[in-house]
Design a protein around this nucleic acid. Sequence first.
DNA 1: CCTTTTTGTTAATCATGGTTAACATTATAT
DNA 2: ATATAATGTTAACCATGATTAACAAAAAGG
Lengths: 160, 160
Amino acid sequence: MISKSIEEYLKTMYVIKKQEGKVRVTDVAKKMDCTKPSVNKALYNLKDNGFVNYEAYGTIELTEDGENLAKKILEAYDIVYLFLKDVLELEEEEAKREAEKIKSTISDKTINKLAKYVHKVLDLNNLDCDYDINKEKCRCCTRRIRLKAIIILNFINILI
Amino acid sequence: MISKSIEEYLKTMYVIKKQEGKVRVTDVAKKMDCTKPSVNKALYNLKDNGFVNYEAYGTIELTEDGENLAKKILEAYDIVYLFLKDVLELEEEEAKREAEKIKSTISDKTINKLAKYVHKVLDLNNLDCDYDINKEKCRCCTRRIRLKAIIILNFINILI
DNA sequence: CCTTTTTGTTAATCATGGTTAACATTATAT
DNA sequence: ATATAATGTTAACCATGATTAACAAAAAGG
């Protein structure tokens, strides 16, 4: 099993892939404010766990599992961010920082409950939505994510 | 500065002190499901940071700073637990587990906002409450904590 | 008392996740 | 085409927080 810390590298790779078209060790290091050897280590860890394909000096490619996990992580972040920003009304930067930390500790179950709650509170008129971070999104969730595109920040062109 | 991991030892010591009257390395280890050497290390770390008084083979005593920090940690836990249990409606055991993890990552600012939100949502009729985890509690908070004594679980005899 | 059990300490070790320094490879620019 | 710059890798190392094994001290029970 992969750690929360390593998951962060995967998420970052996914985002860079969508933004830049290709993923380089240096870019990941820059984005994560860490060194290249750290990225290298994480990379081989991710490879060993089947989340990326990689050969030395080659191109970094996420596997299907890798993509799915990355999407899930990003989504967990969005849900927590949305809650902190729009429900608790934390200031934007604070909400981002805190969402990053919180989403790394909580279980899927909690994320699902939080998502449903946020849906409800922010008045989506769909209290029956059976949100599950591990499943395909329902129309309601999809719509919500689209409507709330602004929360996707610089990932706006990535999701869905 | 002390780490979140070390804070947990302090919190546990505080709880044991209130429950048992005295704190022993073995009890802390049992409660935290770790080994005695781990407790010993944490103990000297806490001592170096002025949160406990201790000499080898002596009795563990929390300083005033230690007590205050422990109270703060317990309270952060209670707030998160209350939110997960009564607002998100997580099952009790899950709420406890998750609260433990979450409260270790979030900032005082977020805790304060969450506390205010929980107060509001659970309808305490005091929307002006200026909760601050670092300050003396307002009447509203004190009352809330009293009313919600049940959430304090086995710590019921400790707080306030 | 003094033996035994419980409790606490110390030293050596480990895993994780990070670093720096040195080097290898690839890409770029003239 | 080749020197230079950028990028990627490797090895050695560090901090943290934990462990096990061995030992020391204190408490408890005959």
